[in-house]
């Protein structure tokens, strides 16, 4: 073990620079967020992830955010075990009918101020599961959504960009982006 740890001291880190948030996303978000509340949090976000019927593909990429390449915690963003400790709910899946109550209760258990990010194509409108008797068809039909991150699944870079968008929103509100969405 010592050898492995020693080697790591000498190697450059694997961690990559952060992607810049997209102007269009930022503008859309800034218009909807209570930026003053977000500013109070400083550059720190606690995320509770909720799988509301995903295929588990989105979870795999959310997990990847914690690996050495993306190292989410360096931005002050971390995943927490309880909705009571969360600022953000990161919700995946088309919302299966069997998960509706659990999602509503998780939302209710999250203290204000709170934000909801729907993650992955099927979380937007049900995606390819939209026509099923067993799904509600999008997170927004059950709880209010502040930001959507598209992709099937979104790559870790896309997830990171979405999360940074949320963190940088207060500045964006102060000085609106020059590129029109």
């Amino acid at each position: 073990m010592r050898k492995l740890l020693f080697q790591n001291l000498l190697r450059p880190p694997l961690t990559e620079p952060a992607p810049s948030p997209e102007a269009a996303e930022l503008a859309a978000l800034a218009a909807r967020l209570d930026c003053a509340a977000l500013q109070r949090l400083g550059h720190s976000l606690a995320i509770r992830q909720v799988d509301a019927g995903s295929c588990n593909g989105c979870e795999l990429e959310i997990h990847a955010l914690n690996n050495s390449y993306y190292d989410l915690e360096r931005f002050g963003i971390r995943f927490v075990a309880s909705p009571r400790h969360a600022d953000v709910l990161l919700v995946t899946g088309p919302v299966s009918r069997n998960m509706r109550v659990a999602l509503e209760r998780t939302y209710a258990a999250t203290p204000d101020p709170k934000w909801v990010i729907s993650t992955g194509d099927c979380a937007l409108d049900g995606g390819c599961f939209a026509d099923s008797y067993a799904v509600i068809g999008g997170v927004g039909r059950v709880i209010p959504v502040d930001l959507h991150i598209p992709g099937c699944p979104p790559t870790p870079t896309e997830l990171l960009r979405g999360l940074l968008t949320l963190l940088e929103a207060p500045q964006a509100a102060a000085e609106p982006p020059t590129t029109a969405p």
Partner: peptide, 21 residues
């Protein structure tokens, strides 16, 4: 909890579309 009714959704689709499900 994550039952999405995938088998029923497949019915009536051509194999290429059903493969995506």
């Amino acid at each position: 909890y994550v039952h999405k009714g995938i088998e029923k959704l497949m019915a009536g689709r051509d194999p290429t579309a059903a493969a995506r499900l």
